[in-house]
Design a binder for these strands. Structure first.
Lengths: 151, 151
DNA sequence: CAGCATCCTCGGCGATACTG
DNA sequence: CAGTATCGCCGAGGATGCTG
């Protein structure tokens, strides 16, 4: 695993070299690519369901089927498939964001809740959701302006 | 476009209904699904390149080819293709996060820089990167623990 | 140099059926 | 009820060649 990032001065404009070297140093700290775990987590947050799942789990502890219905109510147009809900919850559990509790009953009772770490993540997600919503008018405006030129 | 989200009491456990109704109200405010623009932006931030592009653009104003080289240096294993870089920059430009400046020269000189809104977004991204990095040890620990049970 | 067109691969996600 | 297995679609993203 290569952790040292070499910036060849000849490859970049003089005024950007220093800043790039600083960023490169940031990205290569601690013997691992510091950009990788963030990218993985941000990819989760940006996928079809995870950020919504986290917001619903902020409410409390949910059984699988109830959670599926709650997501369907919030998403409206398309419900999450049972298979994907299982996949998403497992990924969150794997990274320590969600705790899974199952009983040996028949039929099974499985419930999910946020861990402290997952609660933090959900709060970060909520922060990002609010940030975008506060700026959505500007974003949508930029979009229509962009789409109307040329074409 | 349906903005009112109806929560049927019979569908959910009593202790979760109230919280779900509150969340549903949050998600349906302002005559549009408030969850949609956030999901779009978060999807961008979570894709293969956008968050890294934003961090590099924080340094200054970049020409297309220089930016491509900078991303390659930071990413190491695989360079972004020229086609995808164009796509990502255009998406950022469309939403008002990046400003594109082109001269009529031959060969063309095209440069990209963050808008004020884009600078904010890059800072949010940096915040998220740092947040994950501060917790990456815990996340990786949870991952190995999870992977070692069963199998 | 920057961008576009074309082709291709791969993974996310949905649908369905089946099991403990 | 929760989970798995199987199948299929579609879009993200990479590779290459061409153009102004």
């Amino acid at each position: 695993m290569k952790t040292k990032i070499v910036i060849d001065p000849d490859d970049f404009p003089q005024d950007l070299r220093q800043g790039l070297a600083v960023l490169a140093a940031d990205m290569a700290t601690h013997g691992t690519r510091r950009i990788d775990p963030p990218r993985e987590v941000m990819a989760m947050m940006g996928d079809r369901w995870t950020s919504l799942i986290l917001q619903v789990l902020m409410i409390g502890t949910w059984r699988h089927a109830d959670l599926k219905r709650a997501l369907a109510a919030l998403s409206e147009e398309q419900a999450i498939s049972q298979r994907v809900l299982t996949l998403k919850l497992r990924a969150l559990e794997r990274d320590g964001f969600v705790a899974r509790h199952a009983t040996a009953d028949v039929p099974p009772r499985v419930s999910y809740r946020l861990t402290p770490l997952g609660t933090e993540l959900a709060q970060e997600g909520r922060r990002m959701i609010d940030w975008v919503n506060e700026r959505s008018a500007a974003i949508l405006q930029a979009r229509t302006t962009f789409d109307q030129r040329d074409d």
